[in-house]
Design a binder for these strands. Structure first.
Length: 268
DNA sequence: AAGCAGTACAACCGCGCACTG
DNA sequence: ACAGTGCGCGGTTGTACTGCT
């Protein structure tokens, strides 16, 4: 049972976008807004896949994009968030206005990874490189008992990356999720200290993932912790129900006060 | 100047989830 | 409950650019 292709590949352009194509896309979105990506190319007179249009707009043409080099501060935020979230680029991008997930992902792979390695830090575990092997062995020892205190970083395989990470987050308490940053602070001489506290973003997609089967109160509390701005205290919502911040009318990715739990939440 | 290797980043691809009928 | 569709995400690839020999 195959998936229907997102577009007629035989009649679509591929590769670099021309200025004319960019202009058509910009004009169309200005007039009609974002969305309906599948039908957009035809309506806009573009011989492109809808997905390609969406990507071009989000990663390159959007007017609110901040082009140019990443600042030192942005570097630190990315490193910090990656240590907490792993390869959740879209979530990391949500904390960096004007930056896209693709941009951050590329920047990570080409700059930060190398920077961390050269300073003796494993970019996946955010631990000192020479102790990474020991950490792996330690994790193996946990396999027969409780879930290992794995670093909050997605493993390379996509199939189990999100599930492993989600499982970790779901049962993760604040102190657990801060273990890696704490380690990093010690390892990097304490130059990165954004005081970020974090838990699992309460996205329905994560709640519904195959790995999410938690029902304990502690875990259901932890899944209500959201990405927190620096220096904000993590406060779990008072009830185990879904936080209502999805209904408060925030723009996607924005932060705001949740009237239900009186906390600062990010609308996802 | 030419060739090569390394780097940067735009774009593509496949998959999973949400939504809808 | 189920299948089809659209969208978003993360991983990967392709290619232009840059620096070195």
């Amino acid at each position: 049972m195959g998936r229907s292709p997102c577009c007629e590949k035989a009649h679509t352009n591929k590769g670099a976008w021309t200025k004319d194509e960019d202009q058509r896309l910009i004009n169309y979105i200005r007039a009609h807004g974002e969305g309906n990506w599948r039908s957009l190319p035809k309506s806009a007179g573009l011989l492109r896949c809808g997905k390609s249009c969406r990507l071009r707009w989000i990663n390159y043409l959007r007017p609110d994009l901040k082009r140019g080099n990443f600042s030192e501060e942005e570097d630190e935020i990315i490193i910090k968030l990656h240590s907490l979230l792993g390869n959740r680029w879209s979530l990391i991008a949500g904390r960096l206005p004007g930056r896209t997930d693709n941009e951050i992902k590329n920047y990570w792979n080409t700059h930060i990874k190398r920077k961390l390695i050269s300073s003796g830090v494993d970019p996946q575990t955010h631990r000192p490189l020479n102790s990474a092997a020991a950490a792996a062995i330690t994790q193996l020892d946990f396999r027969n008992s409780a879930p290992p205190p794995a670093p909050p970083v997605a493993p390379p395989s996509k199939d189990n990356s999100s599930s492993a990470h989600d499982t970790n987050c779901n049962s993760t308490t604040t102190e657990e999720s801060q273990a890696a940053p704490q380690q990093q602070r010690e390892d990097s001489g304490g130059d990165v200290d954004l005081e970020l506290s974090i838990g699992l973003p309460s996205q329905a997609k994560y709640m519904k993932s195959a790995s999410f089967n938690s029902s304990s109160s502690a875990e259901s509390k932890s899944i209500h912790k959201f990405l927190w701005p620096a220096s904000e205290e993590v406060v779990a919502p008072p009830s185990s129900s879904m936080c209502v911040c999805r209904t408060l009318g925030f723009q996607k990715g924005q932060f705001g006060n949740c009237q239900s739990c009186n906390g600062l939440y990010r609308y996802l």
